[in-house]
């Protein structure tokens, strides 16, 4: 683990991960923030590869880049543009910074100061098979609970996000009220304004 190629991989991937994460803090646009998150996740997947954990790395790309980020973008698209602001909370940013710096000092100190013991040279091979076997033998109960949790999350998300026809009518009315307020239409938000009814048209 000391040759030049490994060093190059580790430092560039670490820079990618931390850089992407820092850009989330800075960027004001929520969509940009999600794209920086994707960059950071890809960096972490690469770091898993340097730790020779291929299975976890591929799962990371599959779940985070392919699914979770797309889900976030979808959720952002369903809210109007005014809600895509990713700025900081002015009042809490200061105290949050102090707390975070204290946590950082503590975790770094633990990470560097502790003697972590033996360093193993050989990596785990055939991880997919091993993980699969231990999931259905040793960890069968957590596995089942995880399955139930995912099902519950699926049902819960659908139940929450479902829009009844009445709600839809109220929603459309409120959007119409917003449009009346400022008179401007966001070109990206594809919201068809309710067309005038017959009564209005005749007056």
């Amino acid at each position: 683990m000391s040759d030049f190629g490994f060093h190059l991989a580790f430092w560039s991937l670490a820079a990618m991960t931390i850089g992407g994460a820092s850009m989330i803090v800075v960027s004001r646009n929520l969509i940009h923030a999600v794209i920086w998150l994707v960059l950071s996740m890809l960096g972490i997947a690469g770091l898993y590869l340097t730790l020779s954990a291929e299975f976890i790395a591929v799962v990371q790309v599959l779940i985070y880049v392919g699914a979770i980020s797309v889900l976030m973008l979808f959720a952002i698209m369903l809210t109007p543009r005014a809600e895509r602001d990713n700025s900081q909370h002015i009042k809490t940013a200061g105290p949050a910074g102090v707390v975070v710096i204290m946590v950082m000092i503590a975790t770094m100190w633990v990470a560097i100061d502790t003697d972590w013991g033996a360093v193993r040279e050989a990596a785990l091979t055939e991880q997919a098979r091993l993980i699969g076997e231990s999931l259905i033998k040793h960890y069968i109960l957590p596995f089942e609970i995880g399955a139930v949790l995912l099902t519950a999350a699926l049902v819960g998300a659908i139940a929450l996000a479902r829009q009844d026809d009445e709600d839809a009518a109220v929603h459309a009315a409120s959007l119409q009220a917003e449009l009346d307020d400022d008179g401007s239409v966001d070109p990206v938000d594809v919201v068809d304004p309710p067309l005038p009814t017959d009564g209005e048209a005749s007056t």
Binding site: I31, V38, E54, V58, V59, V65, G66, V70, A128, V188
Partner: peptide, 28 residues
């Protein structure tokens, strides 16, 4: 030895690129 998963993961990322293209164009 996780080739099938790799295939699915890589083809899944293409979606994100299409989304970026459509969103950044600022066109309905």
């Amino acid at each position: 030895n996780v080739g099938v998963l790799f295939l699915l993961a890589v083809s899944g990322t293409a979606v994100l690129v299409l989304f970026m293209a459509g969103w950044a164009s600022n066109n309905k």
